[in-house]
């Protein structure tokens, strides 16, 4: 632990893009209070940047007048706000009860083998980030996972192979 740190902030706010600002402004119009837009702004920035960096956090905090510690509270509360860079495709893999009954454990091992990453990790080529989620609400088609915005049901090793190669070739 460095006991000599005095500054309270080391990162600097980046400049939000016009597009980001336009979308955030739109949200501001929908709420009685600018401070309520924190989560929406995080989602907007993530949509454009892929993740939310410290610099983006400071930018949003400044733009909405929310203390950075409060905004960080929102960002870290929601698992799907990424505070670290993620791969081009995020795999949200359900490991909740129905999927577990239907053998998601071996599917997880398969993805692990195939991509060389486990939960919380990103492939070296930055193509995939592999994350667990608790229930995607599609239990009757278990095991299931999402890649980007698409839901994939009744997973098998074969279907997983196919899905992965499909997303790899997509650009």
């Amino acid at each position: 632990m460095n006991n000599n740190i005095i500054a309270t902030t080391s990162a600097r706010a980046r400049i939000l893009t016009d597009e980001e600002i336009a979308e955030i402004d739109h949200e501001i119009d929908l709420y009685p209070d600018k401070q309520a837009v924190g989560l929406e702004a995080l989602k907007i920035v993530q949509k454009h940047q892929g993740w939310v960096s410290d610099e983006s956090m400071l930018a949003i905090s400044k733009y909405l007048g929310i203390p950075i510690s409060d905004l960080e509270g929102v960002a870290t509360f929601f698992n799907l706000v990424y505070r670290q860079p993620v791969g081009r495709n995020v795999i949200l893999f359900c490991n909740s009860v129905s999927c577990w009954i239907m053998g998601c454990k071996s599917m997880r091992a398969h993805i692990n083998d195939k991509l060389g990453v486990d939960f919380g990790e990103t492939t070296d080529d930055k193509e995939f980030t592999f994350l667990p989620v608790p229930c995607l609400g599609d239990c009757d088609k278990a095991p299931v996972m999402m890649v980007g915005d698409d839901l994939h049901r009744n997973l098998s090793k074969e279907s997983i192979n196919k899905i992965i190669s499909e997303y790899k070739t997509r650009s």
Binding site: T8, P67, S69, E72
Partner: peptide
Amino acid sequence: GKDLAAQAS
């Protein structure tokens, strides 16, 4: 104070 808050869940 503005610089202390609950984080994560």
